[in-house]
Design a binder for these strands. Sequence first.
DNA 1: CTGAAAGCGCTTACAG
DNA 2: CTGAAAGCGCTTACAG
Lengths: 340, 340
Amino acid sequence: MAEVGAPVTMSDVARAAGVSTATVSRVVNGRYGVSATTIAQVRSAIEQLGYESSLVATSLRRSRTHVLGLVTRTFQSYTAEVLKGVMEALRQSGFDLIIYANSDLYETYLEGWEQRHLTRLSGTLTDGCIVVTPWGEVRSSTPVVVIDPVKGSTVPSVTADNLAGATSVVEHLLGLGHRRIGFIAGRPSLAASWSREEGYRGALAEAGVPVDPVLIGRGDFNPESAAPQARALLDRADRPTAIFAASDGMALKVLAVAEELGLSVPGDLSVVGFDNIPESALAGSGLTTVDQSMYQLGYEAARMLKSIVTGEWEGRRQIVLPTSLVVRGSTGPPRSTTGA
Amino acid sequence: MAEVGAPVTMSDVARAAGVSTATVSRVVNGRYGVSATTIAQVRSAIEQLGYESSLVATSLRRSRTHVLGLVTRTFQSYTAEVLKGVMEALRQSGFDLIIYANSDLYETYLEGWEQRHLTRLSGTLTDGCIVVTPWGEVRSSTPVVVIDPVKGSTVPSVTADNLAGATSVVEHLLGLGHRRIGFIAGRPSLAASWSREEGYRGALAEAGVPVDPVLIGRGDFNPESAAPQARALLDRADRPTAIFAASDGMALKVLAVAEELGLSVPGDLSVVGFDNIPESALAGSGLTTVDQSMYQLGYEAARMLKSIVTGEWEGRRQIVLPTSLVVRGSTGPPRSTTGA
DNA sequence: CTGAAAGCGCTTACAG
DNA sequence: CTGAAAGCGCTTACAG
């Protein structure tokens, strides 16, 4: 029952039913103008042969495919959340979803992957695409909605309120009595990265705490990128009493480095992340972080894309969703609460 | 920069470069027998126009597409784990991955979704497919590997050692002193469901504890399906001191029902699940469960599919992966440890 | 109500 | 080394 012969095509059905492929196509697509008898014959042939129209052939011929695409570089935990949101928004919408992932990202196409995939899908397969965290600005012949766009992007997009989120983190740390607060930044090209750094700087400035450039490390959102930065910060004589990493992945790495150096958290060091991925709740006594509902990002992106495709979208094309601070065990007052 | 005109086709490139589409195709695919000058011209036209070949047109024409498919009904947390494993196995393999999800699952196609999607992809788009937890037996004109097949399936598949996993759960509960152990089964058609029930029955029998049919509830792996079953079990005068649910989703529901009824866990009731989804570690003091590495399932399924497609697969076509018991706070000795 | 024919964007023998 | 032509599996005007 596993692997059977060649796929059943529309010609096979036409032959079996004694009609032309045009007629089969009409029946399959429920077009008017086919006699009841013919419909019955064709239906029975379809049933017997187990025919299903080829997605590829159909979408090559049709202008509208009722398939939306999603292009992502990786499948992290947060990707699953995004996908759940997307599927919920698409439920009963008449749009199917296709997700395309490339296996060669460690080779040639790393930089422009999203553009390449987008183009390969757009002309024919999909009516529109969601792109998750692209490396650059994207363009397409069909509608696109970007989740986490690059800085300065003009494409329709959905993003979390990174500025407010980062601000709340620093206010939380300041409230606990921290004054030397380190920051590990994310990939510079992303708008999210800039906003988080801006929130960090702004909140310090607001509190009258000077920003010390030596306390800022440059990561790229990749967990590994945070390790050397954390080590550099924590090896200093005047090391920070708290580190705010621009993503949970990086923050978890900071926790690992702290443990490696024999620093207790939050006694010797408070650590905060951003994203609230599931792993953050599991790490030791929990990682304090900013929740940006990836589910919501996915949901809103899909809702927007769907409406743009059908021409019904009226609202703004750059959506910003609220974030919320989640305080867990990785933050506390510094050892000597004499700062200020 | 967002939405641009019509997609750039191979004809556009051919026109710009002053050659035929056949030549462009040769350059794009790196075929021999094109002069250096022509290659340069075509390359420059491709560059200027930002051309990418259409995935759909290419795969319609070619027999081999170097794209593998994955068909899934939902995106749960475990799906992300499966996908991570799949991508890892496919990394650098030359195979891209396409995931297809249907938005109308709540309508017509609920029952046969996997077969329908499979057929629509198989003829043309993909060289082979992974199907996650199908409703029935699947057939296809190209290779298929099923994760969690239905009972009696003969298709190549990867599955966890559900029998051993369930056995270890019951042994764990027996070891704590439980004798009245309830069970909430999963969807009957799945092989996983049968094996888990078999493990439950077998371990009880092994210990000389008679299986009481009133302690077995029939769920379908869907969390919601467990609520009425749990209530029925817990409303009994001779209620069980422990409930083993065949999935974490259902087990978490059991915890909710217990709380609703004012039962303390594990004091009044021990609860065990199966799967070890991330949420299980977060629930209260943690859900005791069986870890079946979804990452491994995905990884092995992709590795097998890839090899079958390239004709290199030599090993068994029904892989069973080990499981391990994860003891957390939801299990403990029953209130009166006087059983025996 | 039905079919022959063109064409969606490609690739691949087949000629030259 | 290069191009004209056929064809992958469909859909859609256009005739009849």
